[in-house]
Simulated assay, not measured.
Amino acid sequence: MKRRNAVFPANRRALYEAHGYSAAIASSGLLFVSGHVGSRSDGSPEPDFAEQVRLAFSNLETTLVAAGCSFDDIVDVMTFHTDPENQIETVMAAKSRIFSKPPYPNWTAVGVNWLAGFDFEIKVIAQTPDW
């Protein structure tokens, strides 16, 4: 059995370790990324929804880069939304900027009623370089 390799973005390892999980795990050629939210550097939620979505993608990118990956390596996306009907336009605009040409990754969007003070969360699976 192959070993799990934990991946942490620069300057955020303590935040993950304090909560007992990894930002991502690389295993068998894939990167399984935990949900990323639009948190500020101190971990607090960004109140503006569009900026929260932008920060979530930015925080995700930091973890991808730490694993030697990029948005182009993503094969599966799952997003969580506290008010999908009113948020989807903003999310789709961000999605279109990040994934601007085919082939697009798989995508599943889920409406939820709680995200610990956040309104948007994104988790992904990406292909990895050789570990």
Rank of each mutant, 00 (worst) to 15 (best):
H36S: 11
W131E: 13
R3M: 11
W131S: 12
V91L: 08
I98Y: 00
D42T: 06
R13C: 09
V124S: 04
Q127P: 01
A6D: 10
P129C: 09
D76A: 12
G29R: 06
M1W: 06
M92A: 12
A94F: 02
V7Q: 01
D119G: 13
E121Y: 02
E61T: 05
D73L: 02
R40Q: 15
Q52C: 00
A94V: 04
P103N: 04
D130E: 14
I125T: 15
I122Y: 02
N113S: 15
T63L: 05
A26C: 11
S41D: 14
S39D: 08
S44N: 07
A23G: 10
W131I: 12
H36I: 00
V110P: 01
Q127T: 14
A50P: 03
F8Q: 07
L115G: 00
A14T: 13
K95E: 10
V65M: 06
E89C: 07
W107Q: 10
E89F: 09
L31N: 01
S27M: 11
A67I: 03
G38V: 02
N5S: 08
K2A: 13
Y16Q: 06
Y104K: 09
S44P: 00
M92G: 03
D119E: 13
F8H: 12
A50N: 11
A94D: 08
F120N: 02
Y21Q: 07
P103E: 00
A67S: 07
V77S: 02
K2P: 14
R4I: 01
G43H: 03
R3V: 10
A26R: 10
A109K: 04
T108K: 14
F57L: 11
R54M: 03
S96Q: 14
F49C: 06
E89Q: 11
E89Y: 08
F118V: 00
W114S: 15
F32D: 10
F80G: 00
I98L: 07
V33A: 08
E121C: 15
R3I: 09
D73N: 15
V37N: 07
E89I: 10
I88W: 07
Q87P: 08
S100K: 09
A10K: 15
R54C: 05
V112S: 04
D130N: 12
V91P: 03
D42E: 07
R40L: 15
G35F: 07
T128N: 00
I122P: 02
K101M: 09
A109L: 04
N5D: 08
T128Y: 01
H36R: 09
F99L: 02
L115S: 03
N5A: 08
L30G: 02
N5W: 08
R97V: 11
N11D: 15
L31Y: 00
A67M: 02
G35M: 10
I88D: 13
G20S: 10
P9M: 06
R4C: 08
S27E: 15
V110M: 09
R3C: 02
G111P: 09
T90L: 13
F32Q: 06
S28V: 02
L15Q: 12
A10R: 15
G20M: 10
F57V: 05
G29E: 06
S58R: 14
E121V: 09
D73H: 13
I88Y: 07
P84W: 05
S39V: 01
D48L: 10
A6I: 04
V77P: 01
S27L: 13
A116S: 14
T108A: 12
P102C: 01
T63N: 05
L60C: 05
V110R: 11
E51K: 14
N59H: 04
R97L: 13
A24S: 06
K123S: 14
F32N: 08
E121M: 13
